[in-house]
């Protein structure tokens, strides 16, 4: 009996006395390879709360130049598809584009199959920005750093179901012109 109690105590100490992970260890480094749209590594995860909060850091690889026709298309940063919906039907994501020599951040949504986008703010290269999407009954509220929040219409969808996560994606129709890196730390 004593041996078992000692073992239980040791297991408890082993499993609960670890130091918290350093912040760097919780950062996921995504890369979209030249000529591709999807980022790697690929994850399969679902949203589990009414708020998605994360930090993202872009570096100089976010700078690119296309013909004018393609330059202002949104690349996708992070978000989720809404309840049991395919993401071109109902979803909410942050979009980004390199335009006019600055990194623009946009709210990017589908509501009942209709796409809506709205400019939110400017991101600084090599500095983490704080991003947040909150799900409300009939709208999504996007927050980015200290910029004014942006509310976007939410489609007529269910409340209870699967909300799958949408990871970084380059495009638009144009694939990445070179390797594009972004570091993301999901906070909640």
């Amino acid at each position: 009996m004593l041996r078992i109690l000692i073992y239980a105590l040791l297991m408890h100490l082993l499993l609960t006395s670890c130091e918290p992970l350093p912040e760097d260890a919780q950062v996921r480094h995504f890369v979209v390879r030249k000529g591709e749209h999807y980022s790697k590594p690929r994850y399969v995860e679902t949203l589990q709360a009414r708020k998605l909060v994360f930090e993202a850091t872009f570096d100089e690889t976010a700078i690119y130049a296309f013909d004018d026709y393609y330059q202002d298309s949104n690349n996708k940063l992070l978000g989720f598809s809404d309840c049991n919906s395919e993401h071109h039907e109902n979803s909410a994501r942050f979009g980004w584009m390199w335009l006019n020599d600055r990194l623009e951040i946009h709210a990017y949504c589908y509501a009942n199959g209709v796409r809506n986008t709205q400019f939110i703010g400017i991101a600084t290269l090599n500095e983490p920005g704080r991003y947040e999407i909150e799900i409300k009954d009939s709208e999504y509220v996007f927050r980015f750093n200290d910029n004014p929040p942006v509310a976007m219409k939410r489609g007529d969808t269910c409340d209870r179901g699967v909300y799958y996560m949408l990871w970084p994606y380059f495009g638009g129709s144009m694939p990445a012109p070179h390797d594009v890196h972004v570091a993301i730390r999901v906070l909640h």
Binding site: T46, Q48, A49, R50, R160, G161, Y163
Partner: peptide, 10 residues
């Protein structure tokens, strides 16, 4: 099950 009443989670 369900996380926060609405979100299916495994």
């Amino acid at each position: 099950g369900l996380a926060n009443n609405n979100f299916v989670a495994i």
